[in-house]
Amino acid sequence: MKTISIDPITRLEGHGKIEIFLNDQGNVENAYFQVPELRGFEVFCLGRPVEILPRIVPRICGV
């Protein structure tokens, strides 16, 4: 089975890739979108003083 990899996905914020699997006729059998990125803001913001958060969370996305 032939594969087309779009790695990385460009011109957007963040990391992503797409794997497209083609069947014998050259048609798309299936396609998968993957996000190979995790930083964990959800966790390291927990327990932080509230006044610090407005200075941390803008760094989730700066675009």
């Binding site: 914020e13 963040g14 990125e37 930083r39 803008p58 760094r59 989730i60 996305c61 700066g62 675009v63």
Partner: peptide, 9 residues
């Protein structure tokens, strides 16, 4: 790498 894109901006 593990970034927000702010540097690119």
């Amino acid at each position: 790498g593990a970034a927000c894109g702010g540097c690119d901006v």
